[in-house]
Structures are given as structure tokens and as C-alpha cells.
């Protein structure tokens, strides 16, 4: 079912701008990495913008995202493209999404239902089952969405979680972004039977594969999955095939693939593909693309200014006060 074409034209064009905000943000981080501007590492999602923007667009406010270490795109898409709080977090500042205590890999914003993210590959998958348990237990609307990569699909806890979710019939969407690499390991060498989505079928979970670089296709797949989960109260699994433009993290020298390997994927840039879609629909042209690019870059520049004006990091004493809540109820 083509839900996407039924969206208002303005909503559809806005997604081009949204993808560009993520792209410009990641490009800026990539540049700042070469200047060692950040204290710690980070994992960029350039090339995967359609996968996160399309998926989040299909979710409701009542849904919950449990993300992973490559989570900037999902964070921005879920949290009103709040570049300020993302960059401030990466600079370790008190204005950051987690006051500089979490960092790039561990961002959470529970108010906006971006519940948490994890730096442990597959660590969020069982957590998402628990979130879905809570929704079912309290008869709440909404679903839990676990985002993870092809690497996580090899972790025992991910496979155990599929079993639990199927047994317990909880409303969770397992959203696997297969970006073809787990650090340096290509999926074809490290994932037995590379059709990851079929693993879920083995647990009795409805599963499907989608072109993760095709924003309308992602939106349609997630909409369909969400409809299935909310009506059937059963889990669902999507494998979104995409491509990680950058290395795994800022220290990755990309020794395991060549520019020739990358070229066809870069040529299939999800943003350019989406621009083509909008042009075909007479919703955008090159001038609009230029305008959105400038606006996105401007937003990132303003965020850097926001960080410069920061009052700095928390004190050690403030951080120590946040180790445990100590509250009883």
C-alpha cells in the first residue's frame, strides 16, 4: 500500500530538508573529527538518511525509539531536528541532550520518546522488548521500535529477543539497518545467510525487506508494519538495506574497501534519489534543493554558535550526584 503518496506535498518536500539537516550535521561532525574537536568517538550515518527519516515519519508520538551507537539520524528525526542539543552533547556541554554525560553513543530524550540508545551492539534489542511489555501491560497505545544494524543480528541477545517478542506477543518493531558493514566486517562474510529478515520469520515473526535508501519505500514499509503491530499486537521485523558512506567511527581508515567499491553506492545517494522522486512528482527542483542545503547548513552553523555560547560542562560534583537516583517510592 502506497501510504507515502497520500501525504501532503509540503510534508513530502520537508523530508528532503530533513535528510539534508542530518547530512549537513554529519558532514560537519566529520570535518570537526579531522580537527579532533570532539573528546570521544562518533559513528556517522551519512548514506542512511532515508532509512531513519522515512522510518520516523511513519511513527506516532506515542511510539518509542530505542536506538544504537549510530543514532544521530534517528535522534534528529525523532527530536525535532534539534541539532543544538546533539552537538552540545558531543562537545560534552551541559546544554547537551544528556548534559554531556552520555555522549554521541548514549543519547536519550524520554520526553520525545527517544527513550535511549546504547553503545553495546544489540544491547537495545531486549530493552525494546521490555518497553513493548510495558505498553502491553498497561494497555497503552504505541509500539516500541528497536533500531540496530546487521552486526547486531549476530548477537545472541538479539535472537533471544525475537523469541521473547514472538512468545509474548508484544508490540515491537525490530528495525534492522543493514548498512553492509559491522565495523570492518562485510555482511556477506559475517552473516550466515545474508537475508537477515528471514531469521525473524524463523521465530514466527512477520518480516520484510525494504530498500532502505528509498524514502517512500521505507515509509510505506514502516507504516505497514506499524499497522500490523497495532492491530495484531504482534512483533514485526524490517531489514532496511542501506549503505554506510563513512567508516565505522572516526578512527576508521577504510582499509577494507576501496573508493571503487564505494562509488556505485555513493552514486545511489538516498538524498539524490529522493530529489528525483520529488522532481517526478513536481514537488521540488534544483533551486529548492539548493535552498534546503543552505538552510540545513545554516542550522548546523547556528548550533555550533549555540555550543560556543555554552556555560560549559557539568562539574564533577554535579556528575557524581547523578550516579544513582537514591529515591524510594
Amino acid at each position: 500500500m502506497d501510504h507515502f503518496s497520500r501525504l501532503e506535498g509540503t510534508v513530502r518536500t520537508r523530508q528532503l530538508r530533513n535528510m539534508l539537516i542530518i547530512r549537513k550535521c554529519e558532514e560537519t561532525i566529520d570535518r570537526l573529527n579531522t580537527e579532533n574537536a570532539f573528546h570521544g568517538t562518533n559513528h556517522l550515518c551519512m548514506g542512511q538518511e532515508a532509512s531513519c527519516v522515512g522510518a520516523v515519519l511513519a511513527l506516532g508520538d506515542e511510539d518509542w525509539i530505542i536506538s544504537n551507537h549510530r543514532g544521530h539520524g534517528f535522534y534528529l528525526a525523532r527530536c525535532s531536528y534539534d541539532v543544538n542539543r546533539l552537538l552540545a552533547e558531543m562537545f560534552g556541554l551541559r546544554e547537551g541532550a544528556c548534559m554531556g554525560l552520555g555522549g554521541s553513543m548514549h543519547i536519550s530524550d524520554a520526553d520525545r520518546h527517544y527513550l535511549c540508545s546504547t553503545g553495546v551492539v544489540a544491547g537495545g534489542v531486549p530493552i525494546s522488548v521490555g518497553v513493548a511489555m510495558d505498553l502491553k501491560y498497561h494497555s497503552l497505545p504505541g509500539i516500541a521500535v528497536s533500531t540496530f544494524g546487521d552486526g547486531a543480528s549476530n548477537q545472541g541477545m538479539a535472537l533471544e529477543s525475537l523469541n521473547l517478542a514472538s512468545l509474548w506477543e508484544v508490540p515491537v518493531l525490530f528495525y534492522c539497518e543493514n548498512n553492509r558493514y559491522a565495523v570492518s566486517s562485510p555482511s556477506e562474510r559475517f552473516v550466515a545467510n545474508t537475508t537477515i529478515w528471514e531469521r525473524a520469520a524463523g521465530f514466527g515473526i512477520r518480516s520484510m525487506k525494504v530498500d532502505g535508501n528509498d524514502l517512500p519505500a521505507v515509509y510505506n514499509a514502516v507504516s505497514q508494519a506499524r499497522e500490523y503491530i497495532t492491530t495484531e499486537r504482534r512483533p514485526c521485523f524490517i531489514e532496511a538495506e542501506t549503505y554506510r558512506f563513512n567508516g565505522h567511527s572516526r578512527s576508521d581508515k577504510l582499509l577494507y574497501r576501496s573508493p571503487q567499491d564505494e562509488e556505485p553506492h555513493r552514486n545511489a545517494d538516498p538524498i539524490l534519489r529522493y530529489l528525483d522522486y520529488l522532481k517526478n512528482e513536481s514537488l521540488a527542483d534544483d533551486a529548492l534543493m539548493d535552498q534546503y542545503s543552505r538552510e540545513a547548513q545554516q542550522l548546523v552553523q547556528e548550533a555550533l554558535g549555540f555550543c560556543e555560547a555554552s556555560s560549559g560542562p557539568l562539574t564533577l560534583e554535579e556528575a557524581l550526584s547523578l550516579v544513582r537516583s537514591g529515591v524510594s517510592r
Binding site: W64, A110, V125, V129, G130, V131, M133, Y137, L164
Partner: peptide, 19 residues
Amino acid sequence: PISETAFTGAAVGCALMGM
């Protein structure tokens, strides 16, 4: 089921939600 990692992880998830 005998899946200590996953069901303890699920417990973390439902605890984060207030259970």
C-alpha cells in the same frame, strides 16, 4: 524461556518505562 540475557534486558526496558 532460558534466555537470561534477553529477559533481563527486557526487564531493563520495562523498568525504564516505570514498571
